[in-house]
């Protein structure tokens, strides 16, 4: 049996250790970029919530706190299975790792399902921004702005989730052809970091969109 370490060593690297180190630097740098990208949206949201506190509270009151909370729990569970998948790969239990990755995908899909249910409800209640928006009452443009940020930020998050699911599918495929072992499972670690990052972003989104409306 050929050594997977040597198989997976790319030509630009001298040692597997160097390759692992480089991948780790790469993903952390990428996450820095992601933080700044979401950061821009968080800053804009904060500025406008400060400017229009009443309208943002009104908008937030329209959120379905139950679905949002369930989704938070679901997503945190997916982080657990993702972490366990990496953990089992580390100990050479690649089959188990594959199953856990698959579980993570299923949970991720459940999250997206609930998310789109919420989107659909907002759409039906004329809360989707643009031509679909129809808000009766004061501060209509500002309430619409709340929903712009809601759809933009959770939408961007959903895009990240979808990319994560595609990456997980890729991992499962590679796992099935036996690419991973206790010695080499860097891609699982890398995708894992990405997945956890996306989860953390959701926690912040949950806080800024669902919770302000509870004060009413």
């Amino acid at each position: 049996m050929s050594d997977p370490l040597v198989l997976e060593l790319r030509e630009q690297f001298a040692t597997p250790e160097q390759q692992r180190h480089t991948s780790s630097i790469g993903i952390w740098l990428f996450l820095m970029t992601e933080v700044m990208m979401f950061g821009g949206l968080f800053v804009a949201y904060t500025v406008y919530r400060f400017n229009h506190p009443q309208a943002f509270a009104q908008g937030s009151a329209e959120m379905d706190i139950v679905l949002g909370s369930i989704n938070s729990a679901i997503l945190l569970t997916s982080s657990l299975t993702m972490g366990l998948a990496e953990f089992s790969a580390k100990f050479g239990r690649v089959r188990l790792s594959g199953i856990l990755l698959f579980t993570t995908i299923l949970i991720g899909l459940a999250f997206l399902g609930i998310k789109f249910t919420e989107y659909y409800e907002h759409y039906q209640q004329h809360e989707a921004p643009g031509v679909w928006f129809n808000h009766v009452g004061p501060h209509a443009p500002e309430v619409q702005m709340f929903f712009v940020f809601y759809f933009l930020m959770t939408g961007l998050h959903a895009v990240h989730m979808s990319i994560g699911i595609l990456l997980l599918l890729g991992l499962i495929a590679r796992n099935m052809v036996g690419s991973f072992s206790a010695a080499y499972h860097t891609p699982i670690t890398v995708v894992g970091l990405y997945w956890h990052f996306v989860d953390i972003v959701w926690i912040f989104l949950y806080v800024i969109f669902y919770l302000p409306g509870l004060h009413k």
Binding site: E34, M37, G39, P129, V131, P141, Q144, V148, L152
Partner: peptide, 21 residues
Amino acid sequence: TPVLAITLVMLAVERIFTVGI
């Protein structure tokens, strides 16, 4: 660069959907 990216996204969203950002 990601800050520019997201700023341009907001600009495009505002322009396409004629919403207020």
